[in-house]
Design a protein around this nucleic acid. Structure first.
Lengths: 238, 238
DNA sequence: GCGTTCCGTGACAGGTTCGTGACAGTTACG
DNA sequence: CGTAACTGTCACGAACCTGTCACGGAACGC
């Protein structure tokens, strides 16, 4: 599976330089000109790493980073921040920006790629230890096991990835095409209805003990992970 | 909006230490001495997170946690379990207690607060996603749900899109042709009166509980989302 | 008042969507 | 090499959605 990197940078020259070198290093690259566009793209298809210019028109890089950290789905998303001068870099390090590394412009392509690789190496295992929870569902990413209550649920690879994606974004409705992109991958060539089949297998596995169904069907749209009966009042924000 | 944390702990010293540090970190804190009292408080005003001592007089922490998990209203309530020693913590992790994280006594305040924050990040529904509101109507775009007061309103795809458009432009009157273009789409080939039928279905769904009608009919023109007129004002003074 | 226009209402048929089970090609693994 | 598990498709049926229509009452202009 390829690693997706999203570059958020308003200067076209710098953007192209970054994209060229990262693609040459084997990454899949997406680009955004400002914070708004970045948010939209992350929404659509979350990358594995973000390269973020500190100075952006509109939403600044720091603000974007902080905002991402607040969302569970992107709280652990690795971020490499681009800064113009060394002093800035050191000052940003002091602030709590939430970035994983800082690169000073001008940078050498080799250094940039090296830092991206280092951040990915560091970030991956950190994510691996996590446990995703929803209702009486528990998914341990490290051991790749899923429990409902105290019963273990055997899941195939596809089912596991689908459930993981839903657990990372509970309550949120995904349409079939989104799920295909984000679970099966962009290069997968499968029918939309395949999602239904996998949802069905996932449901059968999850509810094998007669528990209530946690997968909500939204007719005409797609699926979401949700509590069945009582309308879940949207929890108050922190 | 503040985050409420309920501490369930029988030792006053530990309770006060926890309360002090959590309040310093900006949380709103409630306290309970045992499981019974905790249940009462959760009933009264559900907290956003529970800190739970493993050893409690009466109802044990584990039992309380399991019981909460069984009730839909509290099934997703984040729980941080306090244990006395490291061995206990590891043993509890093995059992399926349903807790989201474990902290070993003695703990550092910083670690405790960090773990609470982490659990909240994970447990929170993703996306402070857009929510459209009008009067007692609430539409959550991410989860694709609509509430009137605290009653959920089931809506079909078309009804949902129509209501969304009205909610995005409250008070504004749209003629049928406009609604067809903007809700059904430019390429849709349907009768103007179809709008009436959908408005009717939307009204029936929204007012199923006997609430006042929020959809205003503008004769000869179209429809708008509006508060109903409270009373016709007499023009002449008594 | 009176006729006309406009909208609410209920019913209905055709279409769409989704759950379900079955099946075959593929992969994993002993 | 053979078996079992996994995965993508498909066809079918039931439930649901939706556009349309006819009818009657309400609102409006005169």
């Amino acid at each position: 599976m390829t690693v997706r990197v999203l570059i958020v940078e308003d200067e076209p020259a710098v953007r192209r330089l970054l994209a060229y070198n990262l693609e040459a290093a084997g990454f899949e690259v997406a680009e955004a000109r400002d914070g708004e566009e970045a948010l939209r793209q992350i929404e659509e298809l979350p990358p594995d790493l973000l390269i973020l210019d500190w100075m952006l028109p509109g939403l600044s890089g720091i603000e974007l980073c902080r905002r991402l950290r607040r969302r569970p789905a992107t709280a652990a998303l690795p971020v490499v921040m681009l800064t113009a001068r060394v002093e800035e870099r050191d000052r940003l390090r002091g602030l709590d920006t939430g970035a994983d590394d800082y690169v000073t412009k001008p940078f050498s392509p080799a250094e940039l790629v090296a830092r991206v690789r280092a951040v990915l190496r560091r970030a991956r295992p950190a994510m691996a230890g996590e446990v995703l929870t929803f209702a009486d569902l528990r998914m341990d990413l490290a051991s790749r096991r899923v429990f409902r209550g105290n019963r273990e649920i055997p899941l195939s690879r596809t089912e596991f990835r689908l459930l993981r994606h839903l657990l990372e974004n509970p309550h949120r409705v995904f349409e079939r095409a989104q799920l295909l992109d984000r679970v099966w991958g962009l290069d997968a060539d499968v029918e939309l209805r395949t999602v239904d089949a996998t949802i069905r297998r996932l449901r059968r596995a999850l509810n094998a003990g007669g528990e209530p169904d946690l997968v909500r069907t939204v007719r005409g749209t797609g699926y979401a992970l949700d509590l069945p009966e009582p309308a879940p009042e949207p929890l108050s924000a922190p």
